[in-house]
Structures are given as structure tokens and as C-alpha cells.
């Protein structure tokens, strides 16, 4: 039996195909763009292609993320909070808290032993501390979003970034550049600022070591390091981390499909 999870985020849409035995068969990541319905379809098709599977073989599909109701081929919709918790506990057993930093929002989730959500807290009101914040910083410095984390790790003398607002941080960076500050020191300051905001969010749900870092920003190694320094404990991130919402959705799809197939049901 094969199931799928589609996570339609504000910036990227992720698709994951999961075998009933827990193996991830295929995954895909496409930009969401303005046409959300099409992004969901493309992520699904792309995941099928990487797995070499045809769509009729997939028996249950769960949509998640802010655009989950735009997954027109989905059988059910589950919030991304539940999915991130589920996915993190599955791939990183022992997870107590999840930090999900996406393109436009940040969430702190306290997770139970079965991957259930005990508490959560989010910032979706403003771009501070989100992927958008990093994108703006990269843009001002003329760097690629994918490289700024590694650049920040070269810093020896991190600057203090005082602004919270993304718009104001752009001007702050420009003035640091005008003063001849090093790009890596500025970037380290930016990463540290996000780490500080993340910790504040984590504390609101009751932070405990055993942190799974998920969402698109978890690919950024500079961010992982900044968080570890700030928290004083290890942060778990892997190449699956950006797909955690979709993985969790696929796990829910597996449960639903098994439930439906159980004797005496359906």
C-alpha cells in the first residue's frame, strides 16, 4: 500500500510518497507561486515521477499546510501543526519539541510520545524570524538564500542585529555594509536574531531538549548552529526536515487507509 502527503506552504509545496512499511519512496519540492491548486498537482506528479509510481497506485492522500484545501485530489486535510509533530516523532524518536520555520511563519510545537500535539504557539502575523526574513537579508547582500547559512558560519565577530522588523533590518544591513562590516559578521547577527526569536517562541510552549528543526529554513546550517548555541543543546535536522509536514501528512494517510481497510470496517 502506498499513501501520499502534500504540504502546501506559503513559499514551497512538498509532496511525499510513503510505503505502508514506513519507507519514503519519493519526494518533491516545487515553488507554490500564485496558483496553489496547480502547485499541489505538480508536487504530487513530481513525487510520483521520482518514485516511479503511477497515481492509481496511491490509495490515500492527505493535504496539509496553509493551502491544504487546495489539494483537490486529497482525501482529507490535517493542520500542518499535527503533521509536523507526527513526522518529527516518526523520523526522530524522542522528539519533545518541534521548531518549524517556514517561508512566512514560525511554529513551536510541544510533542507527546505518540507524535501528538500537546501545545503549540506560532507567529504568522509578521515576517520576523521566518524564511522571509532570511530571504530579505540575502537579497540586500546580493547573495543566494542557499549560501547565507554557510557564509554566516565563517564569522568571527558577529554583529548585534537590533531590529525585529524585516523592512528595518534591510536598512540596518545597508548601514552595516556602509560602515565596512564583514558580510559574514552581519549574517551571523541575522541568524542569531532569528535564533533568539525562536527561543522566545519555544519557551512559550515549554522548551525541552530533544528539538526537531523542520520547515524550509532547517536546510540552513548556519541556522542550525545558531540555534544550538542559543539553546545549549543539540538540534536535530536532516534532509527530510523540509518535508516533515508532508511526511506527517503521509503518516496520517497511512493510518486512515489502514483504519478503512481493517476488518469489519468499510
Amino acid at each position: 500500500m502506498i499513501v501520499a502527503g502534500i504540504d502546501v506552504g506559503s513559499t514551497a509545496t512538498k509532496g511525499v510518497l510513503l510505503h505502508a512499511d514506513g519507507r519514503i519512496l519519493g519526494r518533491a519540492l516545487v515553488p507554490t507561486g500564485a496558483n496553489v491548486v496547480r502547485a499541489a498537482e505538480r508536487a504530487f506528479q513530481e513525487a510520483l515521477r521520482t518514485a516511479g509510481i503511477e497515481d492509481w497506485e496511491v490509495c490515500f492522500i492527505v493535504g496539509t499546510g496553509y493551502g491544504r484545501y487546495k489539494v483537490q485530489f486529497g482525501h482529507a486535510q490535517i493542520t500542518e501543526i499535527s503533521c509536523h509533530a507526527k513526522g518529527a516523532q516518526f523520523l526522530m524518536p524522542g522528539t519533545r519539541t518541534v521548531l518549524d520555520i517556514g517561508g512566512q511563519d514560525t511554529k513551536a510545537i510541544k510533542v507527546g510520545e505518540a507524535g501528538e500535539v500537546l501545545d503549540f504557539c506560532m507567529n504568522d502575523k509578521c515576517a520576523a524570524g521566518t524564511g522571509r526574513f532570511l530571504e530579505a537579508a540575502a537579497g540586500v547582500l546580493g547573495l543566494d538564500l542557499a549560501e547565507i547559512g554557510d557564509v554566516s558560519l565563517r564569522s568571527r565577530d558577529p554583529l548585534r542585529v537590533t531590529n525585529v522588523c524585516t523592512v528595518f533590518v534591510e536598512s540596518e544591513i545597508v548601514s552595516h555594509l556602509a560602515k565596512g562590516r564583514k558580510v559574514e559578521d552581519i549574517l551571523r547577527g541575522v541568524h542569531n536574531a532569528i535564533a533568539a526569536r525562536s527561543l522566545a517562541l519555544l519557551r512559550r510552549v515549554g522548551y525541552e531538549p530533544g528539538l526537531a528543526f523542520t520547515g524550509g529554513v532547517s536546510r540552513n546550517r548556519g541556522m542550525v548552529r545558531a540555534l544550538e548555541e542559543r539553546l545549549g543543546s543539540p538540534v536535530h535536522a536532516s534532509e527530510d526536515s523540509p518535508f516533515m509536514g508532508a511526511i506527517g501528512a503521509a503518516l496520517y494517510a497511512r493510518e486512515r487507509a489502514e483504519h478503512a481497510a481493517a476488518p469489519g470496517k468499510a
Partner: peptide
């Protein structure tokens, strides 16, 4: 719908 200037800008672009 966004209050944040950065997020509102994305809405504008949408």
C-alpha cells in the same frame, strides 16, 4: 489581510 509590511507586500504581488 496581513498586518506585516513584508507579508502584505506578497499579498499585493498576488
Amino acid at each position: 489581510s496581513s498586518v506585516c509590511a513584508v507579508l502584505a507586500e506578497s499579498e499585493v504581488i498576488n
